[in-house]
Nucleic acid binder design. Structure first.
Lengths: 243, 243
DNA sequence: CGGACTGTTGATTCGAATCAAAACCGGTGG
DNA sequence: CCACCGGTTTTGATTCGAATCAACAGTCCG
């Protein structure tokens, strides 16, 4: 893994852990295959048996499951620096789909290479494990969101979370959060219908809490948003508040 | 960790992985402190900073989060053989509560001991990591359940899942699933109210799909239950169908 | 025996889904 | 350059599933 790809991963892993020079070098030497994806393309699908994981260098992807009645639920959104299918290292069959939200740059690394890396570098292994644990913490919060919050609060919570996560990787330029999701996709994150998401978005706009369009959203009143959302960021387990 | 405690953990870890004699011995030598808990006691609470993990030897516990409005959402139920707070090994602050559902026997192991074990036994580390990944897969399915299924289907799905998981550890005696949850607790798993859970339970009973009482439930028509639930067990990642 | 949960029932309300149609927008091709 | 097309956003009317409110019955336990 070379250049900015390695840098992005290392930055992320260092965020929560202590890696030494050897660890960093090992990551830089990781054999990686870079592939470009268009927006809205499936990367991995339910039932797949992966032999590699991908590092999300640029763009957004989401994970989703679809019920027998064809109802889709998005279970997570991934941002640059993450490894959305890291669980395939130990869970051999995919139990959901992964789809790109935007054009993406993905860096594929074989399971073999990752396993060797883990075997030789305990700190990296711990850091990667930790990444999957943070994912799990976010899943838990999403269950709470969908199960116990009102429609507006759910939507507000999603925005608050993504604002924090994108802020932590320095992707927010004076308040503008670049996240090109359609209202249908928002609805599928929240267990709502598109129509209702549209109405709740209007509520948030009317209150002057945010503006939004196809390219992303812009939080105008963060405090009010987070309060409305019942947002409590502990679950993100962000070690440092990066700005 | 001695006697049946070690056996239960080893059985579980072997289920998905290959451990050799040395690994097994290391687990048996793990220093463990056994504590008994009454039913409905909090084991770990939001904000805690753990220095140990506990192995659930006997009984059931659940993890939950509560919104600012006081609405509780149960995000997972744990059964004997699991380590519900294993994530504390790498995520230092608890982002939810863990409560016993029944009287429980818990075996506490210090983080230090676990970290030494992981450092020396790569296969055990992988097996433990895998456990947390299966947890995460279940969280994802719960989000789908709460987000996209009807009330009856949600309830049916919960029963179907617990039937499979308890079956895999040999806890089902001719169809009877021992799971003493109140309807309020069921409701908190499903993002529903107690009243509505009561009505949906009656629906399932009326259809002759199951019987249930305070001690647990008894599935009469498994196939119909799983179909109604849109239950597809891949996400449980049960390597072998144990009987 | 009494009290506190837990389970059940009925009447009513309400939030979100559904159904349907129109407006908008960005890209494509004639 | 403009007409068209598919996907997305918006609006309105209506329906429906689950919540709410309220009361009562059942059960466990000290």
């Amino acid at each position: 893994m070379t250049g900015y790809l390695a840098t992005a991963l290392i930055t992320r892993l260092i965020g929560g852990n202590t890696l030494d020079g050897e660890d960093i070098q090992a990551i830089q030497e990781l054999p990686i295959q870079v592939r470009q994806y268009d927006a809205r393309k499936i990367v991995t699908v339910l039932g797949d048996r992966s032999t590699e994981c991908f590092f999300l260098a640029e763009g957004f992807v989401f994970r989703s499951k679809t019920t027998a009645e064809g109802q889709r639920q998005i279970v997570s959104i991934h941002i640059p620096g993450e490894i959305p299918d890291l669980q395939t290292l130990h869970l051999h069959v995919m139990d959901h789909d992964i789809t790109t939200l935007t054009p993406c740059t993905l860096g594929f690394v074989s399971h073999d290479a990752l396993k060797r890396l883990n075997a030789r570098h305990a700190k990296i292994a711990a850091a990667l494990w930790r990444e999957t644990l943070v994912d799990a913490a976010i899943f838990r919060e999403w269950t709470v969101n969908v199960g116990r919050r009102s429609a507006v609060a759910r939507l507000a919570h999603l925005f608050a979370e993504l604002h924090r996560r994108l802020g932590a990787i320095g992707r927010i330029k004076n308040g503008a959060v670049p996240l090109p999701m359609t209202q249908t996709e928002l609805a599928d994150c929240l267990g709502l219908t598109t129509v209702h998401v549209n109405r709740m978005l209007q509520t948030l706009r009317r209150e002057g809490i945010l503006t939004s369009n196809r390219a992303g959203f812009h939080i105008l009143k963060q405090e009010q948003l987070e309060q409305l959302a019942d947002f409590e960021p502990t679950y993100l387990h962000q070690r440092l508040a990066l700005q």
